[in-house]
C-alpha cells in the first residue's frame, strides 16, 4: 500500500460519505443521477465477487463492504425512501445507461486477463466504472446550477482515480512485473472524462463564483 493508493481510497470513501451525508441529512438527492449510482452498484458488485474467496487484508475487505453497502444504500434511498425519491428529477436523468452496460460486457469478453468468469467480471467492472460518471455529468450539464455537495462529490470522485494513476506509476517503477493494462487504460479514460468538469470546477473555485457548466 503506497500513499497515492491510500489517498485515492480515502478520497473515494469521502466522496461516497459526502453523498450519503447529503441524502441522509437534507433528505434530498436533487442533482444526483440515479443511473450513475446504479452503475456504481453494478461496478462494485462485479468487482468484489472475490470478497469471500480471496482474503487480501482486513483493510481491503472492510473497504469493499463499505463501498458495496454505501452504493446499494444510496440506490435504495433514491428509489425507495419516500422523501428522497420525491427530489429525484427522473425526467432530467435520461441517459440510457443500459447502452453502457452491453458494450462494456462485450469488451470484457474480448479483452480480459484470462477468459474466466471472475476475470471477465473484473474487466467488465473496470470498463463500466470508466463510463459510469457519464449520466451524472450529463445531468449536471442539464441542471446547470450545481449545489456545493454535488460539485464536491463529483470532484472527489474524479480526484480518486487521479490518485490511482499516480499509484500505478509508482507501482510500475517499484514492483517487478507490475503491469495491468486493462486497469491503467480504463482508469485513464475515466479520469479524462472528468477533464472539462475539473476545468470549470477550478475556475469557479478560483473566481469564487457559483459552479456553472456551459450548456
Amino acid at each position: 500500500m503506497n500513499m497515492f493508493r491510500f489517498l485515492g481510497d480515502m478520497t473515494h470513501l469521502f466522496s461516497v460519505l459526502v453523498l450519503l451525508l447529503k441524502i441522509h441529512t437534507i433528505k434530498s438527492c436533487a442533482g444526483i443521477s440515479l443511473k450513475t449510482q446504479e452503475l456504481y452498484a453494478i461496478v462494485f458488485a462485479t468487482r468484489y465477487l472475490d470478497l469471500f474467496t480471496d482474503y487480501i487484508s482486513l483493510y481491503n475487505t472492510v473497504m469493499k463492504l463499505v463501498y458495496l453497502g454505501s452504493s446499494l444504500s444510496i440506490v435504495w434511498y433514491m428509489r425507495r425512501h419516500k422523501l428522497v425519491r420525491r427530489s429525484y428529477d427522473k425526467d432530467q436523468d435520461t441517459f440510457r445507461h443500459h447502452f453502457l452496460i452491453l458494450p462494456c460486457l462485450i469488451l470484457a469478453l474480448l479483452i480480459n486477463e484470462k477468459f474466466t468468469f471472475m476475470e471477465v467480471m473484473w474487466a467488465f467492472s473496470l470498463y463500466l466504472e470508466a463510463v459510469a460518471i457519464l449520466p451524472q455529468l450529463v445531468l449536471l450539464q442539464r441542471t446547470r446550477n450545481i449545489d456545493n455537495l454535488t460539485g464536491q462529490y463529483v470532484f472527489l470522485l474524479g480526484a480518486y482515480r487521479s490518485f490511482y494513476i499516480l499509484n500505478w506509476i509508482y507501482r510500475y517503477f517499484t514492483e517487478v512485473h507490475y503491469v495491468h493494462w486493462i486497469t491503467w487504460i480504463s482508469g485513464l479514460v475515466q479520469t479524462l472524462l472528468y477533464g472539462d468538469f475539473f476545468y470549470y470546477y477550478f475556475h469557479s473555485w478560483k473566481n469564487n463564483e457559483k459552479l456553472q457548466l456551459p450548456a
Binding site: 493508493r5 481510497d9 473515494h12 472475490d50 480471496d54 487480501i56 487484508s57 481491503n60 473497504m63 469493499k64 463501498y67 480480459n112 486477463e113 484470462k114 476475470e119 473484473w122 490511482y164 499509484n167 512485473h177 507490475y178 503491469v179 495491468h180 493494462w181 486493462i182 486497469t183
Partner: peptide, 10 residues
C-alpha cells in the same frame, strides 16, 4: 496478457 495477479486494489 500475463497470468492474472491477485487483485489487491479496490
Amino acid at each position: 496478457f500475463h497470468s492474472p495477479q491477485l487483485k489487491d486494489e479496490l
